[in-house]
Structure formats: structure tokens, C-alpha cells
Amino acid sequence: MCLAIPAEVIDLLPDEMARVSLDGILKTISVGLLDEVAVGDYVIVHVGHALARIDEVEAQRTLALLAEMGVAAEEGR
């Protein structure tokens, strides 16, 4: 049910709305469910609303962990 995708905030509009880009696909969404959204933030968009902000640092950490887990497995073979 919860189809939602990360998109980059490229412009803040009046009335708690924002333009977001998802790989060049542009859409206007509401950011009223989040506090202090800034241009450049990545937010999770669901049915036209931003639900959460993506934490860049955590994202990098998750990716590093993924890479590490895979490598460890390869070496263990």
C-alpha cells in the first residue's frame, strides 16, 4: 500500500508545498507533515505528501554496511 519514493526538494512553494525531482521527473507535493524542509533535502513522497526526510549520513552508513556484508561473505567462501 505504501508505495513511496525518495525525491529531491528543488524549490519551496507557498502553503507548505514544494517542487521535488525524482531523476528529472518533477512533481509538486505537500511538505506540511515535516518541519523545516530545505532545498536539497531528500524526502520520502507518498500520495503527494513528504512523510520523512532521508538522513544522508545513515544512508551512507547503510550502503557501507551492505558492501561490507557482501565482501565478508565472498571471503568466507
Binding site: 525524482l22 531523476d23 528529472g24 521527473i25
Partner: peptide, 12 residues
Amino acid sequence: KSQVIAACDLLG
């Protein structure tokens, strides 16, 4: 195209 993938993701 990557934009087609993005649009498909958006629309499910």
C-alpha cells in the same frame, strides 16, 4: 531510460 524507471516507480 532512467526517467521512465523513475516515473514508473512514482506510479507503481
